[in-house]
Simulated scan of single mutants.
Amino acid sequence: MDLQKQTAPAAATELRASDADRDRIADILRDALAEGRLTADEHAERVEGVLAAKTVGELEVFIRDLPAAHARRAPHVPVPARPALEATPLDPDDNVVAVFSSAVRKGRWRAGRRIHAYAVFGSVEIDLSEALFEYQQVVIRAISLFGSVEVRVPENVSLRGAGGGVLGSFEVDHLDAAEPQAPVVHVDGWAVLGSIEARPKRGRLVADILDRVQRHLDKGAKGLRKHSDR
């Protein structure tokens, strides 16, 4: 019986991590950066590790020295379920696909938390220079097969990349924003006999970073107050 209790947690840490698991850890790291517990370099290094992590156990390593990791172990207090009509669905992933064709996403559009780009004998262009950022962490997962994926971001966001090429090219110009609350765009993917490229677009800036973050915090606080009043 004791052996089962000891091995159960280990088995849980070996579970494959989902995108939702990675988003949860990324949110904790973002809060730690805002509180001054992590430097900008430490935050960037850990977020890159989170994107590359394969299991739940690998994710936990990046927050084990943060208070949020210990708070999550507190006894769970059941909360009454919200009515189905008030439930807020998760934002769906945004897919940009080009098969023997071209696909372009540009102008004033809302960038979701995750964007999937697939170029198969075609070209995909994702231009975030005028996009509305509703999340601080935006992940673009790109696959290029005999095609090209081109990503452009404003100059005052952070840009990260993790991927490679097989007889192809994967090029991401890493960029560090001066503002800690600025959006962070992660480009993750593989180019097979194709190309993936991510660079800042000169002269383009996200002008409402602080206002956007404050509105997000106010909205979250309002939701918590509304929930506690029930």
Rank of each mutant, 00 (worst) to 15 (best):
G122Y: 08
S123P: 07
I126Q: 08
D127H: 09
D127M: 11
L128T: 12
A131R: 08
A131H: 09
L132C: 07
F133Y: 10
F133C: 08
F133D: 14
E134R: 12
Y135P: 05
Q137I: 06
Q137T: 10
Q137K: 00
V138F: 13
V138N: 10
V139Y: 11
I140N: 07
R141N: 15
R141Q: 15
R141I: 13
R141F: 12
A142F: 04
S144Q: 04
G147H: 13
S148V: 13
V149C: 15
E150M: 10
E150L: 07
V151Q: 10
V151W: 12
R152S: 13
R152Q: 12
V153D: 13
P154H: 09
E155C: 01
E155K: 07
L159G: 15
G161C: 09
A162P: 03
G163K: 02
G164E: 00
G165S: 00
V166P: 00
L167G: 02
S169V: 13
F170H: 02
E171F: 05
V172R: 00
V172S: 02
V172K: 00
V172T: 01
H174M: 05
L175W: 11
L175K: 12
A177K: 02
A178M: 09
P180Y: 05
P180F: 02
P180S: 06
A182R: 02
P183A: 03
V184C: 02
V184F: 04
V184W: 01
V184N: 01
V185H: 01
V187W: 09
D188Q: 07
D188Y: 03
G189N: 03
G189V: 06
W190L: 15
W190H: 06
W190R: 02
W190I: 15
V192C: 07
V192Q: 03
L193P: 00
L193Y: 06
L193C: 07
L193A: 03
G194Q: 01
I196V: 12
A198D: 14
A198Y: 11
R202E: 12
G203Q: 09
R204C: 14
V206I: 07
L210C: 10
D211R: 02
D211M: 03
D211Q: 09
R212Q: 15
V213N: 02
V213S: 05
Q214T: 12
Q214E: 15
H216F: 15
K222E: 01
K222S: 10
G223M: 10
R225N: 04
R225F: 02
R225I: 05
K226R: 10
S228A: 15
D229M: 09
